[in-house]
Design a protein around this nucleic acid. Structure first.
Length: 237
DNA sequence: CCAGACGTTGTT
DNA sequence: GTCTGG
DNA sequence: CCAGACGTTGTT
DNA sequence: GTCTGG
């Protein structure tokens, strides 16, 4: 799945990399957590426009917005049929800029966080769904969720699901309101491992458990874990 | 008909 | 809003 | 995703 | 254990 990600470029570099103007990204982010407002790309006036959305989808009909805590991901296989997501799948598709995402490997001795990023280290875009929610008092909240699919072979060592990464040439098809459901679903595949036609793929790097706490958001969150014994008290005889 | 759920992950 | 269960 | 809270009464 | 907040 995908419950944390990074966007370490600054605003200017991100706009250049994505070919978008007017994107708001005040500072590099090393540990983006659900409930936070982040840049997104949507379709507007026939083009691609940047906006800011809160991570965790609130369906328009929800009475309790805390449902967002449980809707940070949507299964690509079923999102088009689910009451919570089908409306957004039809008319609220969006792209979420990122340059890495985190997965935790559960094993004896605890959970170890890993960061997955492109070997090129370039930013990429995740397939997302956006919604607009209005509270009884008239407060409007715009939210998003990230689509997930089966893990590629290289990622499956860590986790069996991964977010959907759309290639640059797939972005417009995903956002285009006239794209049909079959063609949309065909886009929602695992990111390909290196092979014929794909010289470079995803890289997996273990990182410090500093990323565990959503209160941490600094380069230490994507740094390698300290070597064993690093911080242990030293005893000498 | 009305009431109540509506989701993902992972684990059992 | 829309679907399922009673 | 992980971390941290999780309750009532009454009083300040 | 389960829910909420980040």
């Amino acid at each position: 799945m995908c419950g944390r990600y990074t966007l370490t470029q600054d605003q200017e570099a991100l706009q250049v990399a994505l070919g978008v103007e007017g994107l708001v990204h005040p500072r590099p982010r090393y540990n983006v957590a659900p409930s936070q407002e982040m840049p997104a790309l949507i379709r507007r006036d026939g083009g691609v426009a940047p906006t800011r959305l809160r991570w965790g989808l609130i369906p328009s009909w929800a009475r309790d917005p805390s449902i967002a805590n449980r809707l940070i991901n949507a299964r690509a296989e079923t999102a088009h049929t689910k009451p919570s997501f089908r409306s957004a799948f039809r008319s609220g598709r969006c792209l979420i800029p990122a340059d890495g995402f985190f997965e935790w490997l559960k094993g004896p001795g605890g959970k170890r966080p890993f960061r997955i990023h492109l070997e090129s280290k370039e930013p990429f875009t995740l397939a997302g769904l956006a919604e607009r929610w209005e509270s009884a008092s008239g407060e409007v909240i715009r939210t998003f969720t990230i689509l997930t699919t089966d893990a590629s072979e290289s990622i499956s060592e860590i986790h069996h699901r991964m977010p959907v990464i759309l290639a640059p040439e797939e972005r417009d098809t995903w956002l285009d309101p006239s794209t049909g459901p079959d063609r949309l679903r065909a886009l929602l595949r695992p990111y390909p491992d290196p092979g014929p036609g794909h010289a470079r793929g995803l890289a997996v790097q273990e990182v410090s458990t500093r990323v565990n706490s959503p209160a941490h958001d600094d380069p230490g969150c994507i740094a390698p874990p300290p070597p064993p014994g690093h911080d242990l008290p030293l005893f000498r005889t």
